[in-house]
């Protein structure tokens, strides 16, 4: 266990964390703002990359490819939204159905191959793992910081608009939203589209970063997203009340997650056990509010007995 090997792995972990932080912001929008546990992201997290890589291999401009990735992700979100709002399927199941369908669709996009590579020397990529130790503007850490900042500014603006406010009201109190004339079904569809568009953007960036897209790239993405959201609420929940700062905290949460993963790997954990560890950690943190509530009730009933 050499500390310098850990330190040399940190820039990579930070860059990855920032890229997955974009995805985590997408998860935050559905999970926290819209109160909708959207499992579509496990599929969308491969779709964005697949669309981007295939388009670029076929000669499409980087920015056009990124835009198409986002649009593909939004389409996936819309499908989940339609499953839920037009067909009455519960949120989690709607997401699972889209996610399953996306597996086939992703393979189809990738020419029925499980993975596709894209070489940074041949194509003009926005981010690449190769540059992670460069001290220049091509360093993915700097680029991702800029992308994250722009995204947060745009989202901050959007959720302050009339439409954005109605999305927040829908997630907060559906009954109130309806009574105030808000079309909550439409709001949910829009929210799912925005969220999955963002996830697909993250996917496209990650595929570029690692130089390839894999059909299994998104497996467990929702758990990583939740982990980032939970880490951010635990550490910054009491500190940040501003919406923009909260989104920033989610991004930091994702970076911390990847750094922790890096440390755990450095300590000698088998890579194949990572997903087990992630699931257990997220389950533990999701349980904390439930446990604290129970503990409070126990205290109260004990107090009542003594009184």
């Amino acid at each position: 266990m050499n500390i310098s090997s850990l330190i040399s792995a940190l820039p990579g972990a930070t860059a990855q964390g920032l890229i997955w932080g974009i995805m985590a912001i997408g998860v935050y929008l559905t999970y926290k703002v819209l109160d909708f546990s959207d499992l579509t992201v496990d599929g969308t997290m491969a779709t964005g990359g697949a669309v981007c890589v295939m388009l670029m291999i076929n000669g499409t401009n980087l920015w056009v490819a990124l835009l198409c990735s986002v649009l593909a992700g939004m389409a996936a979100g819309l499908v989940t939204g339609i499953f839920h709002t037009k067909m009455g399927i519960p949120p989690i199941l709607s997401g699972i159905l889209t996610q399953l369908a996306l597996y086939s669709i992703n393979l189809w996009i990738m020419g029925f191959k499980a993975n596709q590579g894209i070489n940074v020397t041949k194509y003009d990529l926005l981010v690449s793992a190769r540059n992670v130790r460069h001290l220049g503007m091509d360093n993915p850490i700097f680029i991702m910081l800029a992308v994250t900042a722009i995204l947060i500014v745009v989202l901050y603006w959007f959720f302050g608009t009339e439409l954005g406010s109605s999305l927040r009201a829908t997630g907060c109190n559906e009954q109130m939203a309806k009574a105030q004339g808000i079309n909550v079904d439409r709001c949910k569809r829009i929210g799912l589209m925005i969220s999955n568009g963002i996830v697909a953007l993250s996917s496209a960036l990650f595929a570029q970063y690692q130089g390839s897209v894999d059909v299994n790239m998104g497996r467990g993405a929702i758990v990583i997203g939740l982990a980032a959201v939970i880490i951010s609420t635990v550490i910054f929940g009491k500190l940040f009340h501003n919406f923009g700062l909260k989104l920033m905290a989610v991004s930091i949460g994702a970076v911390l997650y990847y750094i922790v993963i890096q440390v755990v790997l450095w300590l000698g954990l088998n890579t194949n056990l990572l997903k087990l560890l992630s699931a257990l950690v997220v389950a533990f943190f999701l349980a904390i509010p439930y446990w604290t509530k129970n503990a409070k009730n126990m205290k109260r009933s004990k107090g009542a007995k003594h009184a």
Binding site: G160, T161, E162, L163, G164, S165, S166, Q180, G181, I182
Partner: peptide, 10 residues
């Protein structure tokens, strides 16, 4: 309530 909600400031 009863109006269209667009991208104007909330």
């Amino acid at each position: 309530r009863g109006q269209k909600r667009g991208l104007c400031i909330g």
